[in-house]
Nucleic acid binder design. Structure first.
Length: 254
DNA sequence: ACGCCCTCCTGTTGGC
DNA sequence: TGCCAACAGGAGGGCG
């Protein structure tokens, strides 16, 4: 992928989370991929003239396929490479996005205000302590706020809080210093383990090679409502917070 | 600045 | 079996 040239960008469906700019194929055709990066959940393909930003949304996936592989329903664009392969984006719900910027991608409006990465030194317990003070919002919703910390989606928010033994409905400001420190460690641990397992396949998620992620087998609470807690045996509870499902153990998490 | 709620879209699941 | 509502991995935006 890296150092490959983009032969063409073929867009089959422009109606993604943000409409795909019609100028995009011409802007990236013939460009070399100088580097591949990531910021929060945006994939960054660094080209000579700018940067392609790809977001998978909830149901998107990106796979490397042979360029002549027949298209399937919900295949929305192909980044065709000079290796006779294509980076193919499929997304039934079309919550994903494809953007291009000629400027520093960090200054793109969608990236400029993003919080530190969980593995950055800047995301430490002092930082989380500071941003949780005076916040009335529930801690689970706070750690899913990408303006405060990025990368923590609905699954990992429940899992991190379980591991930190903090009830998801607690107001952020009620956390003690010790709990904040524990939560920073838990967020990092959960994400590190999930990455190692290849992610979490609930239904149809696959990686670029088509393989599912195996972290689902290691989930302690997510999607386990009514089942016994893996630590204490108490029935795991399900509830809704901010229109998202939340799972927790009422005994382990306080 | 903050918190709450809505929205985009399609596919699957579960209840009746 | 069929129908329909609820729900699903994200996150920007509007409003009070």
């Amino acid at each position: 992928m890296r150092h490959r040239c983009i032969v063409a960008l073929e867009v089959y469906e422009r109606r993604l989370r943000w409409p795909v700019a019609s100028s995009l194929p011409a802007a990236v055709a013939g460009q070399r991929i100088n580097g591949i990066g990531r910021r929060a959940k945006y994939l960054l393909l660094s080209l000579e003239a700018g940067t392609l930003l790809i977001h998978l949304g909830m149901s998107g996936n990106l796979r490397v396929v042979k360029a002549d592989e027949p298209r399937r329903p919900h295949d929305h664009f192909d980044v065709v490479l000079d290796s006779h392969h294509a980076l193919r984006f499929n997304d039934p719900r079309r919550f994903g996005s494809l953007l291009f910027t000629r400027a520093d991608p960090a200054r793109h409006p969608l990236l400029a205000k993003l919080a530190p990465e969980p593995f950055d030194a800047a995301f430490d317990s002092e930082y989380l302590w500071r941003v949780t003070r005076k916040r009335r919002v529930a801690i689970k919703q706070l750690i899913m706020n990408s303006h405060l910390v990025v990368g923590v989606g609905n699954i990992y928010a429940s899992e991190a809080l379980f591991r930190a033994r903090i009830a998801p409905g607690r107001r952020a400001a009620s956390l003690t210093r010790a709990e904040v420190a524990q939560l920073v460690r838990a967020v990092r641990a959960v994400l590190a383990q999930a990455i190692r397992a290849g992610g979490t396949t609930l239904r149809d998620y696959v990686g670029a090679d088509g393989a599912p992620g195996y972290f689902r087998q290691r989930l302690y609470v997510y999607e386990r409502g009514g089942k016994p807690c893996r630590r204490c045996g108490t029935a795991v509870r399900a509830r809704t917070q901010g229109q998202r499902s939340t799972y927790y153990c009422p005994a382990c998490q306080t």
